[in-house]
């Protein structure tokens, strides 16, 4: 770490690497998912849109949307955590404009989601925690909420196969 590295250079490096991870996935763009970054901490944001509704009577978010949002958050957090050291040391510099520079994403092996409350027709947030990341397999826990951080709408546990080589 270089203590005197210019701040804007640090932020640009991290933001463009995060953007490279996220912008390569059409489905994430279609759902409208974006990521807020504070240092290495990521919060996924899913802005409300009518096409995300699964129950028009209540109305409530579609369970599949909630699941997809949690899964996407887990994948991005895992890929982000896995590349952090290489990114900070300058060994890699992912750039959305250069597809070959993009890190390969982990593959989902299984995904278990608990629905705790019905999702309201408003923005949702999620954060993932990499519980264990080995050379080949990883286990990730992820939570989603809306108005209150303590009142989760859903949580999930997922296992991933890490990209090799």
């Amino acid at each position: 770490m270089d203590r005197n590295e210019p701040l804007d250079q640090i932020k640009t490096r991290r933001d463009s690497a995060l953007n490279a991870l996220v912008s390569g996935v059409p489905y994430m763009h279609w759902l409208g998912i974006r990521f807020d970054r504070r240092g290495d901490e990521l919060t996924a944001v899913l802005p409300f849109d009518r096409k995300l509704i699964g129950n028009p009577q209540l109305p409530a978010l579609h369970g599949g949307v909630t699941a997809a949002f949690l899964e996407m958050t887990a994948i991005v957090e895992l890929a982000w955590a896995a590349m952090w050291e290489d990114l900070e040391s300058g060994r890699i510099a992912p750039d959305a404009a250069m597809p070959e520079s993009l890190p390969r994403l982990p593959k989902t092996i299984d995904f278990t989601v608990d629905y705790l409350r019905s999702g309201l027709p408003r923005d949702a947030y999620a954060r993932a925690n990499v519980v264990r990341s080995g050379r080949r397999y990883a286990s990730v826990q992820v939570e989603a909420w809306q108005d209150n951080r303590a009142r989760l709408i859903a949580q999930a546990t997922a296992h991933f196969l890490m990209p090799q080589g």
């Binding site: 996935v25 994430m28 579609h62 599949g64 949307v65 997809a68 899964e71 995904f111």
Partner: peptide, 13 residues
């Protein structure tokens, strides 16, 4: 390849 989340949405529905 289609995203896993899409498969989730289809199975859930």
């Amino acid at each position: 390849v289609i995203h896993g989340g899409v498969v989730s949405a289809l199975m859930d529905t």
